[in-house]
Amino acid sequence: MTRRPRDYSGVALVAPFTTPYRRYSTETAHWWIATALRGSLAMAGLKPADLDGLTVSSFTLFPDTAVGLTQHLGLSPRWLDHVPMGGASAGVALRRAARAVQAGDASIVACVAGDTNQIDSFRSLLSSFSRFAMDASYPYGYGGPNANFALLTDRYMRDYGATREDFGRICVAQRENALKNPGAVMKTPLTLDQYLDARPIADPIALFDCVMPCAGGECFLVMGEDEALRRNLPYARLDAAIERHNAHAEDPIQLRGGWTVDIDTLWDMAGCGPEDIDLLQTYDDYPVIALMQIEDLGFCPKGEAAAFIRSRDLTITGDFPHNTSGGQLSAGQAGAAGGFIGLVEAIRQVTGQAGGTQVPGAKRALVSGFGMINYDRGLCSCVTILSEGVRA
């Protein structure tokens, strides 16, 4: 039996904070998480003791989890969650936090993510990322996502006629957006010719198709609208949210994500359609995944995303603003915090706090997440739709 989920009325998202990303860091994940949390609390004029809920996402927090982190940070929440879902972490954490607030299990929940990036962090992460990868990928001489996404990208190009120029349009537009984001790692303009001439990584993927691992932290707070109003805080409303895991397991190669399973529920819950979205934040570890999301979320039919973006401007001032902070491809991928980058930016946008990356008149944003590339596919997917509540 299919039941229509109850809506998220009365939930407010406030105090979006980013600890500026760095390529490498000798600090621990704990430091990055604590810095982001402190920044968000300061924005809201709150003290740590005001929090009674906490959800944490990190790849490099080991051997600690959210439980151990409460002792490090001196917190005593009555509601606690740990969401180790990579690029889907933000949307999943938000759904759980929103339900906790609606149920009265917590009044103010901090959703925080952070990761460090020491010289050997990425290799260490890959060496024990998943049992599937250890058993099925590493014995053949490679680890990490580049080879997997090369196969996916090649198949997508063959099936749907996308070209490297199409992927380049995404990367070039996001770099232009990143140049307006003071916290972005990438600070040099990128042209389409430079994208096409970049050194190959795993055919057909080249240098600018790959995210840059870095260190960083992201945080936002979830509370009731009445609480946000009482504290005079600008806030975003949560209009709709879905998540799905291990969808379409029968597909021989992943050319669609779990978003497709629940997309009608999402739009029905939000009371709007793709034409009503002012800006889109997709998870973008590789540009092919951004194209898949544009299709699966209903902005165009399957296989037509390449043609769709050829006639649109994806920059902040364009007619289809996409990954306005620069996304992970240009702002950087701070581990699990990279899964938060789009949601934190979307909160800024609809509350009028985005500064140099602000989309004029932005009132409604869609954020999609994609995570846990387990051997041959991403297992976790989520979508949230936010709208203007009270602006700064």
Results as ranks from 00 to 15, higher is better:
residue 282 T to A: 13
residue 225 E to C: 05
residue 145 P to C: 05
residue 43 M to G: 00
residue 57 S to G: 10
residue 66 A to D: 03
residue 277 I to C: 04
residue 245 H to L: 09
residue 350 V to F: 07
residue 93 A to S: 14
residue 227 E to R: 10
residue 26 T to K: 15
residue 365 A to H: 06
residue 309 I to Y: 04
residue 287 P to H: 08
residue 193 D to G: 15
residue 204 P to S: 10
residue 69 L to F: 11
residue 351 T to M: 01
residue 377 R to P: 00
residue 164 R to V: 09
residue 40 S to I: 01
residue 45 G to P: 15
residue 222 V to D: 08
residue 135 D to T: 15
residue 270 A to G: 01
residue 291 L to D: 10
residue 234 P to I: 00
residue 319 D to Y: 04
residue 42 A to P: 15
residue 300 C to Y: 02
residue 35 T to K: 09
residue 362 A to K: 00
residue 93 A to I: 03
residue 280 L to M: 12
residue 110 A to H: 12
residue 319 D to N: 15
residue 199 R to P: 11
residue 373 I to S: 13
residue 100 A to T: 07
residue 295 E to I: 00
residue 223 M to W: 05
residue 343 L to R: 05
residue 73 L to K: 07
residue 172 V to D: 09
residue 299 F to D: 07
residue 292 M to K: 14
residue 39 G to E: 01
residue 251 D to I: 11
residue 308 F to R: 12
residue 137 S to W: 06
residue 28 T to L: 13
residue 169 R to W: 07
residue 173 A to T: 02
residue 100 A to Y: 03
residue 199 R to N: 11
residue 264 D to I: 00
residue 276 D to Y: 08
residue 204 P to H: 06
residue 261 V to S: 11
residue 265 T to Q: 14
residue 216 G to F: 00
residue 99 R to I: 04
residue 323 N to W: 06
residue 184 A to F: 08
residue 146 N to H: 09
residue 283 Y to D: 07
residue 253 I to T: 12
residue 268 D to C: 02
residue 223 M to Q: 07
residue 305 A to N: 11
residue 76 S to A: 12
residue 148 N to C: 11
residue 302 K to F: 04
residue 329 L to A: 12
residue 101 V to N: 13
residue 96 R to W: 10
residue 113 A to Q: 06
residue 24 Y to T: 14
residue 132 F to M: 07
residue 144 G to N: 08
residue 252 P to Y: 10
residue 352 G to I: 05
residue 194 Q to P: 09
residue 375 Y to A: 10
residue 169 R to F: 05
residue 251 D to Q: 14
residue 257 G to A: 10
residue 173 A to M: 05
residue 354 A to H: 02
residue 246 N to E: 14
residue 336 A to Q: 08
residue 199 R to M: 08
residue 246 N to P: 04
residue 348 R to M: 01
residue 29 A to V: 11
residue 346 A to I: 03
residue 65 T to V: 10
residue 41 L to T: 06
residue 333 Q to S: 12
residue 92 V to R: 12
residue 39 G to D: 09
residue 95 R to Y: 06
residue 375 Y to I: 01
residue 330 S to L: 05
residue 334 A to F: 01
residue 89 S to N: 08
residue 198 A to N: 11
residue 134 M to F: 15
residue 47 K to D: 07
residue 336 A to C: 09
residue 366 L to E: 05
residue 202 A to R: 06
residue 264 D to M: 01
residue 299 F to G: 07
residue 213 P to I: 04
residue 350 V to D: 03
residue 172 V to G: 08
residue 392 A to K: 12
residue 158 R to H: 14
residue 316 I to F: 00
residue 49 A to W: 00
residue 110 A to Q: 13
